[in-house]
């Protein structure tokens, strides 16, 4: 709540014309916005461009932020719409990536090969890799819930889904994550 009060104070300053104050919000949320964008596009350069675009849009429409929700929730809604709109334009690329995800990269990258054994990964690295193997919506959901500290209701508002739908998807996403960890990273887990 402290963070929210703080955000609103910064927003008031920006709306009063102190543009430099906006850097505080950018510094505070850049990692979250960038990580979420990366969950959609899986390319650091594109994710950074999208993240920048999100902050510029948020600045332009800052007067529309009413404070009914957390600033972060409002900001992540912009991330969602900006990334979806980008993906719609680059639809072919998305299909290719999905296909790759389904049939190729994960298998090639993580198949157990005695000659090309993966380095011992820390739990963090393993989880991070496992999340990257999830379908983008599931990865996004877990990032929003666990990392961006959004409640189930807030995740629903960001993704444009109902709370009960989010509950079901969260349950399934965790199940898939466990499956990936158990199948792909079995060796490391033992």
């Amino acid at each position: 709540m402290q963070g929210q009060t703080n955000d609103i104070a910064v927003i008031q300053l920006v709306l009063q014309g102190k543009q430099a104050a906006y850097a505080t919000l950018v510094d505070r949320y850049q990692q979250y916005v960038f990580t979420l964008a990366l969950r959609y596009v899986n390319n650091r350069e594109v994710a950074e461009e999208l993240a920048q675009d999100v902050f510029v849009k948020a600045y332009r429409f800052l007067a529309d932020f009413k404070g009914n929700s957390k600033f972060s929730t409002w900001l992540y809604t912009i991330v969602n719409s900006t990334c979806l709109s980008y993906l719609r334009k680059k639809n072919e690329g998305v299909l290719l990536l999905e296909e790759e995800k389904m049939i190729g990269i994960s298998d090639n990258q993580f198949a157990e090969k005695p000659t090309d054994k993966l380095e011992q990964k820390t739990t963090k690295q393993m989880l991070d890799s496992a999340i990257k193997l999830l379908p983008e919506e599931d990865a996004l959901l877990l990032t929003l819930f666990y990392q961006a500290e959004q409640s189930v209701d807030e995740v629903g508002a960001i993704m444009g889904l109902t709370t009960s739908n989010i509950k079901v998807r969260l349950f399934r996403a965790r199940g898939k994550l466990r499956d990936i960890l158990e199948t792909r990273f079995k060796a490391e887990l033992c």
């Binding site: 950018v26 510094d27 994710a47 950074e48 993240a51 902050f55 510029v56 963090k124 989880l127 666990y146």
Partner: peptide, 23 residues
């Protein structure tokens, strides 16, 4: 495990500067 392990990604060091220039 999930709570303690999901890491945030870091954009480039110029990120804030780029945003402020665009803004």
């Amino acid at each position: 495990e999930i709570v303690g392990s999901i890491e945030l990604e870091q954009p480039s060091l110029r990120f804030t500067k780029n945003v402020m220039e665009a803004v």
